[in-house]
Design a protein around this nucleic acid. Sequence first.
DNA 1: ATGAAAGCGCTAACAT
DNA 2: ATGTTAGCGCTTTCAT
Lengths: 333, 333
Amino acid sequence: MANMKDIAKMAGVSVVTVSRVVNNSANVGDETRKKVQKAIKELNYKPSRVAKRLRSTVASGNLLGVLIPDIQNPFYIDVLNGIEEIAYKNNYALIMCNFNQDEEKQAKYIDMLMAEAVDGMIVAPVNAEDEKIINVIESGLPIVCVDRGLKDVDVDVDVVLVDNKRGAFLAVEHIIKSGYKRIAYISGKPAIPSSKQREEGYISALNKYGIKIDKSIIKYGDSSHKSGVTLSNELLNSINPPDAIFTGNNLITLGALETIHKMGLKIPEEIAIVGFDDMYWSNSLNPPLTAVRQPAHEIGKRAIELLIQRIEDPNKSTVQMILNADLIQRKSC
Amino acid sequence: MANMKDIAKMAGVSVVTVSRVVNNSANVGDETRKKVQKAIKELNYKPSRVAKRLRSTVASGNLLGVLIPDIQNPFYIDVLNGIEEIAYKNNYALIMCNFNQDEEKQAKYIDMLMAEAVDGMIVAPVNAEDEKIINVIESGLPIVCVDRGLKDVDVDVDVVLVDNKRGAFLAVEHIIKSGYKRIAYISGKPAIPSSKQREEGYISALNKYGIKIDKSIIKYGDSSHKSGVTLSNELLNSINPPDAIFTGNNLITLGALETIHKMGLKIPEEIAIVGFDDMYWSNSLNPPLTAVRQPAHEIGKRAIELLIQRIEDPNKSTVQMILNADLIQRKSC
DNA sequence: ATGAAAGCGCTAACAT
DNA sequence: ATGTTAGCGCTTTCAT
């Protein structure tokens, strides 16, 4: 592969001039620029992003890290998709790190990203008090949090979130207005802020409509498909089963549906279900799923836009961007 | 961040010695090694992967590129997941490139990966004669193809595939044995080899059981969810509709299900469906989907294992690994 | 067993 | 408008 020296030689200029042409600096003569461009084309020269990254003082390495809690979760795929779209447009490469909700794996990936000298990272932190991430932020590396924020109020960080409480409220209110009386909630990992917020929305809806909270039909899992299967099973096989279930994320929803179908229960007649998180194939479910839609793709886009802005101007003040989640009514409730 | 020089100074040795310790080279005194290790711990030193990548002659940069045709497709997610699992274990970072079945985007991503000096790439080529990829292979960069091979017999490349023809045959045979007479096939992009191979399996099953091929119920789309919706609609609203559909990939399956549910058709009584590609939530569909399962996760794992082997020994002979796809019988046929 | 010197491909700072 | 020098953090080669 040709390098700057080759181009310089061919064009009869110094490497600095080549660098200037490559980076569109001013102060290059028209003639010179043309000669260099010709050589670049001729030798099919592509500047080494590695050398640039090593040398540059300002972030310009065009490399970003993305830390994802669970790549099997369609929500994060959509977020990732949004991130990738903008990254590509801006010539950023993306190192993808899937840490499976595992704090240790997350920490190791963060070390790796630092060693790769990324210009910034997008993270959905395992927990709201993650020291590792807080350290990185304090070190000055641009970071944007998605889906989950950080608790420490002293930490200044850009965050892109969804109004989980309101989304959950909307869902449960709809369930109530549809005439259901005994509404269960299957929560994700309680340690994840969004799980708690969704529970708050669930509770505030019940409160508003004067339905007594029954803790026995609030089930806590680990945000997985499997916990959706198991917990819905416990719920539906109990002495006093619910007539509707609000599920805390899409994996749980899918798990609950599996149980419901296995039991041969009719949706929404025998059991209604509303899920948090929509999928592009919610209409392929039978009946089509009523769900709270997070604008996942937009979350991703906003996050990387904020990140790029911060990279370009590290002093810009941080923002907390809260997007709306809305209810998509279909047939499952 | 501490660098080698800092460690060297602190340990009272030269940077070379530090490098030797970091890379577990022989010829380092026990005492020296300990001093260096202590300094490394104390300063929390992490070697720069960037500098290493720039300097190293042998591939040791521990960076890989993954080129994915469509990140919204659950099959590729599973493949990616398998890749990531092994990459992480081997301390490889992964640059994720989603090219949306777009040849130009794929080409640009390949340029980017070259500029990042990756040690190798895993690719599912847009088309079987992709010049760009063939060039890269000929340049000597380790590459493994997944899901789709390359046509040019002169090109020596590791490939991990599934026996698409046999998988499709199994599916269609099962449909026939279940008593269906008029079996449609909704194909993905005909240019993609796997689409053709699946069609071959479909045809050979029909042939074996003496069912005449009716070209009017073989529909060609672009492997997308949308084409699944549209083409199944055409099929089911025709004068002589099929009583069963074999769908060419999971996105098409999902699209077809959407149409079927919208039309209120009963599965499998009024229309049977068997899909190519299984999902972990196939049981959440109603009825649970009968599908051909590709070992997607294993495809990913095998691919990166081959890639790492090739990176470590560029002269090893190439292999073509063909995995089995098997039929998972559930309730949709 | 250890180190000095050179250099990977590029950019920053300072000339001219 | 262009070039010279130095050096990012590491590994390689050759010495000792």
